[in-house]
């Protein structure tokens, strides 16, 4: 299958069930909401070593937030509800509670509740005050710029992590341009994040390693430096730079829609812009229950 000179592999991305929550962080202005959100979603590229995968979903206008201030919604994904609860508490405690003027609210109403302000309230050393407003409990913790308001809990939902695209390009400039365009197209969609730096990962991995202690190692089949050296290589003399985009989403449909938008953005740039082939990472379909077939995604209507 060739689209605008770009070969679409007859392959699929393999994704896994995860647990996620959405937090709404508001602040005196968007700058400080973003400062908190960037900090809280820092060092959260992969569950392999970060404990969670997190990112900014979108910016919120004052009309869209519970307290009428500018805000940012962030999504945090983890492999279990317990680990997610730990990550939320640490990240909100260290990065949102600490950030000037912020407040934090649950961005998802339905689902199993995990602590948000429930334990952070003890920072108030007895001066904290609970307030139930319209059936929702909030905590008011006195801090040096006034008070930190946090909803008591946030909800955890089942979700999908690990959707991905491999963008195989002619050179670094082309690969960055294609990847940036694809990420920009995906960011326009709700309910998804691309957790890696700038949304893009250059160190795509395969499962396992020659070293027994490593669970994942470099995806040698896609490393241009190993062309002609590795036993099996997907690299050709023309595809000399590969970028991967990993997508976590609240539902299978959200991940599929983001992958479709990313592919379409890449195809729009086409072979003329240096994108030669789009592939996806999988493990033979044996590990993850969610399979995103690239050609099926492109054939499906965009609204699906």
């Amino acid at each position: 299958m060739i689209e605008n000179g770009v070969a679409i592999d007859d392959s699929f991305a393999e994704a896994f069930p995860m647990k996620a929550t959405r937090l709404v962080i508001t602040a005196h202005n968007l700058t400080w909401a973003l400062n908190a959100a960037v900090s809280a979603t820092g060092f959260a590229t992969s569950v392999i070593a970060c404990g969670c995968e997190a990112g900014i979903e979108r910016e919120l206008s004052p009309a869209d937030t519970p307290d009428g201030r500018p805000g940012v919604s962030v999504l945090i994904f983890s492999m279990s509800g317990k680990e997610l609860a730990k990550q939320v508490e640490r990240r909100v405690g260290q990065c949102v509670l600490t950030c000037p003027t912020t407040a934090v609210f649950a961005g998802i109403a339905e689902g199993e509740a995990i602590a948000l302000g429930k334990n952070l309230r003890f920072f108030g050393d007895g001066w904290q005050i609970s307030k139930v407003i319209d059936g929702v409990r909030y905590w008011r913790v006195p801090v040096m710029d006034g008070e930190f308001v946090a909803q008591e809990t946030t909800a955890v939902v089942k979700c999908v992590g690990g959707g991905n695209l491999l963008l195989m390009c002619t050179d670094t400039d082309a690969a960055l341009a294609v990847a940036e365009a694809a990420v920009a197209a995906m960011k326009a969609l709700p309910n998804v994040i691309m957790p890696f730096p700038g949304g893009v990962v250059r160190s795509g991995s395969k499962v396992g390693s020659k070293y027994a202690t490593l669970g994942a190692s470099t995806n040698d089949a896609f490393c241009p430096g190993l062309h002609g050296l590795a036993a099996r290589s997907e690299i050709t003399p023309r595809t000399r730079c590969v970028m991967e985009i990993v997508i976590d989403g609240l539902t299978e449909a959200d991940v599929g829609a983001a992958m479709r938008a990313g592919m379409q953005a890449g195809i729009a740039i086409g072979a003329a812009g240096g994108l030669l082939r789009i592939s996806a990472g999988n493990y033979g379909g044996k590990l993850g229950p969610f399979h995103f077939h690239l050609r099926k995604l492109l054939a499906a209507p965009a609204a699906a």
Binding site: P66, D67, G68, Y138, E147
Partner: peptide, 14 residues
């Protein structure tokens, strides 16, 4: 002496 603007908006809207 401190503002409680966030709390006030939550309460006032309710």
């Amino acid at each position: 002496v401190a503002d409680a603007l966030v709390f006030w908006q939550l309460l006032a809207r309710d």
